[in-house]
Amino acid sequence: MIAYIIRRVLYAIPILVGVNVITFLLFFVVNTPDDMARMFLGQKHVTQEQVEDWKTERGYHYPLFYNMQEEGADTIRKTIFYNKSLRLFIFDFGRSDSGRDIGFDITQRMWPSLAIAVPQLLIGLLVAITFALLIAFFRATYIDYWAVVICVALMSISSLFYIIGGQYVMGKILRVVPISGFETGLFGIKFLILPVLIGIVGGIGSSTRWYRTIFLEEMNRDYVRTARAKGIAEQVVLFRHVLRNALIPILTGVVVILPLLFMGSLITESFFGIPGLGSYTIDAINRQDFAIVRSMVFLGAFLYIVGLLLTDISYTVVDPRVRLR
């Protein structure tokens, strides 16, 4: 087990290197350091000299990959790639192009993201499983048919509609919750209600439908048929046997996205003005602060790989037949 984990961790390194190289190439083709400098020096009265100074200060004056003017290790070390990309591996995110420490910002903005994402995931899971179980109970009836159609309809509505409509109805017409904003502490709960609710409603269609198929698959298995044949009541079969077994694929499916909860939701956060990592990323894209975008890409990739690893491990935990090689 431990050997397996170590092997997986080692395997993650080339992947992260790959991610790094790809993003590095993309971003430096997009924006030369000159562009960045001008972006950040503002639009009035900028001279080339100031641009050069800015680049020097931020370490963008080095060549991209190989510094021919230096010798020895410095040929590699005095390059943009070394300074801007490889440092990410030790989670040294450096400074954003506007001069703030990215690592500090990430640790601060992580919490609002989690405050939205975690309740959304948990409540959403609970609701979807309940609905799916109900639908599965009424399988092959009209309730089942129409429930699936409603699920598909819910899936087909753009998430933007949920957000715009939700703000309009709940915040403006009914005045039940603040339209947007964020606050820490108990007082802040009322800010979370709407985004969490919208997140749940937006995701409920697809997850209910997905869990329903899992339940149905489980219900067609032999042991369920045997249990029923033994005369066990339907709801007992459903709750005791089907639910318990179907939870395995559902939960392992959840594990893979757990780490990514940190990243937050791009759209929701920027609509509701929540100072999480999602809106951090959007802002960075809009302001073309590539130092932040690069860091977020790296963080995202890292968390994704952690998620994969956790999934593999969770499989062995719930199902001892799966052995990790």
Partner: peptide, 27 residues
């Protein structure tokens, strides 16, 4: 207290101006 108050409560009567900024300041 209105439910939809986006500001921390209890300060309404104080001598405070409520305003906003749309983009985080760079400098």
């Amino acid at each position: 207290e209105p439910w939809n108050n986006p500001h921390a409560g209890g300060e309404e009567s104080l001598n405070i101006v409520y305003s906003s900024f749309s983009e985080r300041p760079k400098h």
